[in-house]
Computed example of a mutant assay.
Amino acid sequence: MVTVRTVLITGGNRGIGFALAEEFIAQGHRVAVTARSGEGPAGSLTVRADVTDGASLDAAYAEVESKLGPVEVLIANAGITKDTLVMRMTDEEFDSVVDTNLGGTFKVVKRAVKGMLKARFGRIVLISSVVGLYGSAGQVNYSSSK
């Protein structure tokens, strides 16, 4: 018998996050996804959130907790790319990717930990990239944030 958990997946409106949400739903879990736009898969609760904005995350967590219960499993998946060669990359392009991929992960984990410690249970999965290990041309910002 599988224990049903409340799962929150950041960036669950497409790609890996969407596929993970579908799988957790198929296994019978309560699933919420964050998205700046778009929707998560059928059967999930989509909440609007920007992982770089603490107030936005607090509002998203409050909505998930009120509708599905405390977050027991967090999948920190949200990420962006702004690829260009380092000599052409602007400070804003570098900062926005690092702020989302690294800073956003920190913020979403920090918010999740409070409830998990109180419940004395929780699981956190951070989605990375092979680019974080090996690098890739034009992705100094992305690879350093992963």
Rank of each mutant, 00 (worst) to 15 (best):
T81E: 07
L74H: 06
G11N: 08
L68K: 00
N77W: 10
R30I: 01
A19D: 15
H29I: 00
S44I: 01
R48N: 09
L74R: 07
F24P: 07
R5C: 00
K82N: 04
E93R: 09
T84I: 08
E63S: 10
A42D: 13
G17A: 14
A49Y: 03
P41N: 10
G54P: 00
R88N: 11
K107C: 09
E22N: 12
A59L: 07
K107S: 12
A42S: 05
R36I: 14
L57N: 08
A19E: 12
R14I: 12
R48H: 05
A49V: 08
A35N: 05
E93H: 14
L8H: 11
N101C: 05
T52S: 14
S66R: 10
V51I: 09
G103W: 03
A26W: 06
T34A: 02
M87Y: 13
A19Y: 13
E72T: 08
A21Q: 02
D95K: 13
I25Q: 02
V73A: 00
K107M: 12
V2G: 13
G15Q: 04
V97A: 04
M87Q: 05
A21H: 03
V64I: 05
E22A: 15
S37L: 12
G15L: 09
K107N: 14
E93V: 00
A62R: 10
V86E: 15
R5H: 00
L20F: 10
L74D: 02
T3L: 04
E65D: 00
V97N: 15
L68A: 02
D99S: 02
T6A: 01
P41G: 15
G40C: 15
A21D: 07
S56M: 07
G104N: 07
A35P: 01
T34Y: 11
I9L: 11
V31R: 01
D99C: 10
Q27M: 12
